[in-house]
Amino acid sequence: MSLPEAHSSEPSLTAHILNDPLNPFPWYRVMRERYPVYYSREFHSWFITRYSDVQRVISDPLLFSSEQSIRARPTNKIQPTTRPLLWTDPPRHRQLRSLINQAFTPRTIANLAPRITEIVHAHLDQVAARGQMDVVSDLANPLPIIVIAELLGIPIQDQQRFKHWSDIIVSPARQQKKQAVIEMNNYFQMVVDQRRQHAQDDLISALLSAHIEGTYLTDAEILSFCRLLLVAGHETSTNLIGNALLTFDEHPEAFEELQSRPELLPGAIEEVVRYRTPIQRLRRATTVDTQLGEHHIKAGEIVSPILGAANRDETQFSAPEVFDIHRNPNRHIGFGHGIHFCIGSSLARLETKIALEILLSRFTSLRRIPDVPLQHVTSSFVYGVKSLPMTFRERQ
């Protein structure tokens, strides 16, 4: 195995990234400049940090396999029929995505806008008189959980269980993670069995009826998509909303401009995705011996493309450390690239846009409470804060 010459310095690099998870960006820059292809003994993985290399890895499923990256885990017990869409390679990935797209359509997402608006207003109504709120717990967390639960046809009394499962699955707690997956699978299997007997106007019923040339999704494939939608949809939207408000607080001039020109919000959201990418790191495995940069990577080894590092690559973005809501073009890869482009990205964008539009229209002088320390979400993949208390004034 060919390792970087400065491999002995790994503890300083890895430790700084892990010990300062809310500001890994200076270390990403060091890695791009000095160790763009870098083996981490702690993660048993090659860290890939330059935009061109990251894009290559996530765009070539034949050479960098999602499926084999799961098989490579020594404790993995996932059977081939239960692999989620995220960890499936072509040709089955293409079939699965086509079937899921029949139920999870752009129209389905667009039709959620009135309900999303209603949920946001309801949650802001609860805090308006107080003059302060925790953006995460009062809005960014409950919003996507409610939307996804209703989309799947899950009753309101079970929604907190969903949040609990989602938080555990993205955490490093392996034993609890296995138990959460089991509990979630049992729950979704119960719902699938009910919908098979009595179809309703929800996504699970639509997934059961989706087919191509007589091929239907198996129960295991439906369960895995429900898990993926719950976890990825919740974590992406929650952290995108939180990251946006945190970044706007750090750049009040941008926030003021958005209040006067809300039509700039879509571009501002894309810049938040680039600047504070909600999902920082992915996982792939090489299918054959390959060369990345100056390093030879053997077949079967794990590579970790770091989206958060690629999105600040100086060769791709002008002044990448500057938050610029007018950035154009903005070819970030915060939602991935190629066949695994995030299937829930349109939902995350819609929820974030509506949430921010309403916040901008209802409140002014949104400011983070400075003496409350920020705590990073407990995950080596997800970027966000656990809590974001802010004060505000309600518009008259």
Rank of each mutant, 00 (worst) to 15 (best):
A128L: 07
A122C: 04
E221G: 05
R274E: 00
L13W: 09
S304L: 12
L282D: 06
E263Q: 14
I70P: 00
L366I: 15
A103E: 03
S166A: 15
A129T: 08
F225G: 07
I17V: 14
N141E: 05
R174K: 14
G267N: 15
L240W: 01
Q68M: 14
R327S: 10
D89A: 13
A199T: 07
P266E: 01
A310K: 06
L207K: 07
A220K: 15
S166T: 04
V127S: 13
W46L: 03
L228A: 10
P320T: 01
E257L: 15
E257H: 14
Q95W: 00
V135R: 10
E394R: 13
G233M: 10
A285E: 05
I306G: 03
R107F: 02
V54F: 12
N141C: 04
F255A: 14
N243P: 05
H198W: 02
I156W: 03
S69L: 07
S59V: 01
P26I: 06
N311I: 02
S166Q: 05
Q280A: 13
T75S: 14
F43R: 12
N330R: 09
G308M: 08
P144D: 06
A140G: 06
N76L: 11
P305R: 09
A122T: 11
R50G: 03
K163G: 13
S9P: 00
H234L: 07
P91F: 04
G214I: 01
S166K: 10
L18W: 02
E10H: 03
H326C: 09
P26C: 11
I306C: 04
E321F: 10
I339N: 04
S69V: 05
A348Q: 09
T290C: 15
Y38P: 04
V377K: 09
A199S: 15
Q68N: 14
V181T: 09
A180C: 11
A140W: 01
Q132E: 14
E221Q: 15
E314L: 06
E271S: 10
L62I: 01
T287P: 10
F225A: 09
N186Q: 14
D193H: 07
M133F: 12
S9C: 02
D193A: 15
E294I: 00
F363H: 02
L143R: 11
H234W: 05
T236M: 09
N186L: 10
A232E: 11
P11E: 07
P24C: 08
E118S: 15
Y187F: 14
Q291R: 15
V135G: 08
Q375S: 13
P24W: 02
K177E: 08
R73G: 09
R349D: 00
F335E: 07
W46G: 03
R73V: 12
S365I: 00
A348D: 05
P90I: 04
P61M: 10
G344K: 13
I169S: 06
A129H: 12
A72S: 15
S2M: 08
P142C: 11
E314P: 05
A6M: 10
I58Y: 07
L207I: 05
